[in-house]
Amino acid sequence: MGKVVLVTGAARQLGGRFVRRIQRDPEVERVIAVDANTPPHRLGSAEFVRTDIRQSAIARVLAEYAVDTVVHLAVTGGGGAGGAGSAVKETNVIGTMQLLGACQKSPTVRRLVVKSSTSVYGAAPRDPAVFSETTQPKSLPALGFAKDAVEVEGYVRGFARRRPDVAVCVLRFANILGPFADSALAEYFSMPVMPTVLGYDPRLQFVHEDDVLDVLRLAAGEPRRGTLNSGTFNIAGDGVLLLSQCSRRLGRPTIALPLPALTWVGSALKAVGVTDFSPEQTRLLTHGRVVETSQMREVLGFKPMYTTAETFADFARSRGNGLLPPERAARAVDRVAGALKVDVAVAGTGSGAGSAAEEGAQR
Results as ranks from 00 to 15, higher is better:
residue 124 A to N: 11
residue 262 L to R: 05
residue 237 G to V: 02
residue 359 E to M: 14
residue 185 L to S: 06
residue 281 Q to V: 09
residue 70 V to F: 09
residue 269 L to V: 05
residue 242 L to F: 11
residue 355 S to P: 06
residue 106 S to G: 13
residue 241 L to G: 09
residue 41 H to G: 08
residue 355 S to H: 13
residue 27 E to I: 09
residue 104 Q to L: 15
residue 186 A to E: 05
residue 301 G to E: 03
residue 272 V to R: 07
residue 325 P to I: 14
residue 15 G to D: 01
residue 250 L to N: 06
residue 12 R to G: 15
residue 11 A to D: 06
residue 6 L to I: 11
residue 4 V to Y: 02
residue 50 R to G: 15
residue 16 G to E: 07
residue 71 V to N: 05
residue 295 Q to R: 15
residue 114 V to Q: 00
residue 271 A to D: 07
residue 333 V to G: 13
residue 196 T to F: 01
residue 295 Q to S: 15
residue 254 T to G: 07
residue 332 A to P: 04
residue 120 V to H: 01
residue 176 I to C: 04
residue 334 D to S: 12
residue 126 R to G: 15
residue 133 E to A: 13
residue 112 L to K: 00
residue 138 K to N: 07
residue 147 K to S: 13
residue 33 A to C: 07
residue 289 R to C: 10
residue 61 V to L: 07
residue 11 A to I: 03
residue 21 R to P: 03
residue 73 L to H: 00
residue 243 L to S: 07
residue 179 P to D: 10
residue 291 V to F: 04
residue 128 P to V: 08
residue 124 A to R: 05
residue 135 T to E: 08
residue 4 V to D: 03
residue 56 S to M: 11
residue 79 G to L: 05
residue 94 I to N: 04
residue 164 P to D: 10
residue 157 R to S: 10
residue 354 G to L: 15
residue 349 T to N: 11
